[in-house]
């Protein structure tokens, strides 16, 4: 009798343990993204133009540099920040200036960000400035999309492709 109880107890223990392991291995389900939303993801890796402003070195300065390194002009290597704007249905939802990466500010600027929008029809406009000017943009693009729930619209800037790319 005592033995029967023991074996039953063990069976119950194993059953409960198996249930705990099995259940949490794939449940409860988790909703990561709302059912009625779509996502605009904007990304780029792009270097703004060099700040420029080269300066002629003086004769004395040149003297101090190793002969093989001597260059008449001292040109700073840092780049200007990349300024971007994103409009959805006429309203600006994102506007930011992305600094160059790298220790010397000479690497490309990066952006990777998602913007959830209600599913449906949307006008999406993007603008980017990668030069030293104070206003206006070097690249712009606009498109009209009908986004299904859960759909991803990728807005990518690729200089080598000539500017912004929309991918539905």
């Amino acid at each position: 009798m005592a033995n029967l109880l023991k074996w039953t107890g063990q069976a119950v223990f194993y059953a409960v343990l198996a249930a705990v392991i099995g259940y949490f291995a794939a449940a409860p389900a988790y909703r990561h993204f709302a059912a009625d939303q779509a996502l605009i993801k904007m990304t780029f890796t792009h270097g703004g133009e060099y700040k420029g402003g080269c300066r002629r070195r003086t004769a004395k300065e040149l003297q101090e540099i190793a002969p093989n390194m001597r260059k008449d002009f001292d040109c700073p290597r840092d780049r200007v920040p990349v300024v971007v704007e994103l409009d959805v249905d006429g309203a600006t939802v994102y506007r930011a200036s992305h600094d160059p990466s790298g220790l010397h500010g000479d690497g490309p600027a990066n952006m990777y960000q998602g913007f959830p929008v209600p599913a449906g029809e949307h006008t999406v406009a993007v603008r980017l400035r990668d030069t030293a000017r104070d206003s206006g943009f070097d690249y712009t693009r606009e498109g009209r999309f009908t986004l299904a729930p859960g759909q991803l619209l990728v807005v990518q800037f690729r200089a080598e492709a000539g500017g912004f790319i929309f991918r539905e």
Binding site: F24, A25, A26, A27, P28, A29, Y30, R31, H32, F33, A34, A35, Q37, A38, L39, P149, G150, Q151, L152, R167, E168
Partner: peptide, 12 residues
Amino acid sequence: STVVSVVRLDWY
């Protein structure tokens, strides 16, 4: 081309 919305997570 889609955003994953519901996942059956392995909670461990």
